[in-house]
C-alpha cells in the first residue's frame, strides 16, 4: 500500500505538472476512478434530462420532452391548486353577509389580503396604489370618510359590481349634473361658485357675490346637493360642506365644475371578477380607514 503513496521526502516517485512557482511544484496525481464514473453519470443524466424535459431547439420552438413539462403548465397547475385550496374559504366569503365578515377574524384576514391583491390588479390604475385617488383626474380617494355613492360595505360592493355612469351595466350608478354653462349666465355661475365656496365654513372670497349666489344655489343646486350642501349619496351628489373636494375646492375649479359639469365613470366589475373577488375587494376598501358602518 505504501508504495503507491508518494513520499514527500523522495520526490522521485511523484509525477508533477512541471510547473513551479517560487520552487513550489504541483503534483500531478491521477484522479480517482469513481470521479470519472460520476462524470460519465452526469453525461448520461444530461442526455436523459434533455429527452425528458424541453431542451433541443428546433426551427419553431423546442422539443417538448417526454414528461410534457412546461413552466407555463406548471404555473397553471399551481394556480389551480391554489384555487382549489381556497375554494372552501371563497365559498364562505360569498355566503356570509358582508357586514358579518369582520366578526370572523380568519375570514376577514383572508378577505382583506385577497381584496388587496384584487385592488392592486384592477383598481390601483385609477385610484392609486395607496388608494388615495387622483384629485386632478377626479378619481376619488378611498381612504377618507367621504363617499359619493355611500360608504357602507354593501354600497361599496354595489358600486364595484355595477360601476358608475357606464353603458355596459344597466344597473350602474347614474346621475348627471347639468352643464350650467348652457343654463346660467357667467355672472350667476360666479355668484353660485362664491356661495358654494363658503359652504364648508370658509370665509367668502367676495361676500357680496357669495350672498348673491345663495338664491341660485337654492334654486338650481339644493335639489341634489341639499340646502346645507351636505350632498345626497343616493344621487351621487357630493357633499359641498366638507373639507373634501373631488376635483378641487378652489374658486377657479368650482367655476369650472359648475360651467362644464363632471362626468366621472367607473366600469362594472361583476362580469370580470368573481363574486368572492368583489366581496373581498369591497371588504378591503371598506376597511381602508373611511368605511361607514350603519348602526
Amino acid at each position: 500500500m505504501s508504495k503507491t503513496h508518494k513520499d514527500p521526502h523522495d520526490k522521485q516517485d511523484v509525477q508533477t505538472t512541471g510547473h513551479s512557482w517560487d520552487g513550489i511544484e504541483e503534483y500531478d496525481n491521477p484522479m480517482p476512478r469513481w470521479w470519472l464514473y460520476t462524470f460519465y453519470a452526469t453525461i448520461v443524466w444530461g442526455i436523459g434530462y434533455t429527452i425528458a424535459f424541453p431542451a433541443w431547439p428546433m426551427i419553431s420552438g423546442a422539443t417538448s420532452g417526454l414528461l410534457g413539462f412546461s413552466t407555463r403548465g406548471d404555473l397553471v397547475a399551481d394556480l389551480e391548486r391554489a384555487q382549489a385550496a381556497n375554494a372552501e374559504i371563497n365559498e364562505r366569503l360569498v355566503s356570509v353577509a358582508l357586514t358579518e365578515i369582520p366578526d370572523d377574524p380568519d375570514l376577514n384576514q383572508y378577505a382583506v389580503n385577497k381584496g388587496a391583491a384584487v385592488y392592486r390588479t384592477f383598481c390601483s390604475q385609477c385610484h392609486g396604489s395607496g388608494a388615495a385617488g387622483v384629485q386632478a383626474a377626479g378619481y376619488p380617494n378611498l381612504l377618507d370618510d367621504d363617499w359619493l355613492w355611500g360608504g357602507t360595505v354593501e354600497e361599496i360592493h354595489y358600486t364595484i359590481s355595477h360601476g358608475i355612469r357606464n353603458e355596459d351595466d344597466i344597473d350602474a350608478r347614474y346621475s348627471e349634473m347639468p352643464v350650467y354653462g348652457e343654463i346660467l349666465s357667467d355672472e350667476e355661475i360666479e355668484q353660485v361658485a362664491h356661495y358654494a365656496y363658503t359652504l364648508n365654513g370658509r370665509d367668502p372670497l367676495d361676500a357680496d357675490m357669495a350672498a348673491a349666489g345663495e338664491e341660485t344655489f337654492l334654486y338650481e343646486c339644493a335639489a341634489c346637493h341639499m340646502e346645507d350642501g351636505s350632498g345626497n349619496s343616493d344621487l351621487g351628489a357630493p357633499a359641498l360642506n366638507d373639507a373634501i373636494w373631488l376635483y378641487g375646492g378652489d374658486y377657479e375649479t368650482i367655476v369650472e365644475t359648475v360651467t362644464y359639469s363632471r362626468y366621472g365613470v367607473m366600469p362594472p366589475w361583476q362580469n370580470r371578477l368573481t363574486e368572492a373577488d368583489i366581496a373581498a375587494v369591497a371588504t378591503y376598501v371598506h376597511q381602508l380607514g373611511g368605511g361607514v358602518t350603519e348602526e
Partner: peptide, 15 residues
C-alpha cells in the same frame, strides 16, 4: 402612500 388623508371634517389622519 399617501402621507396623510384629509377627512371630511378636516381632520388630518396618518396611518
Amino acid at each position: 402612500n399617501p402621507v396623510y388623508v384629509t377627512m371630511s371634517d378636516g381632520t388630518i389622519r396618518n396611518t
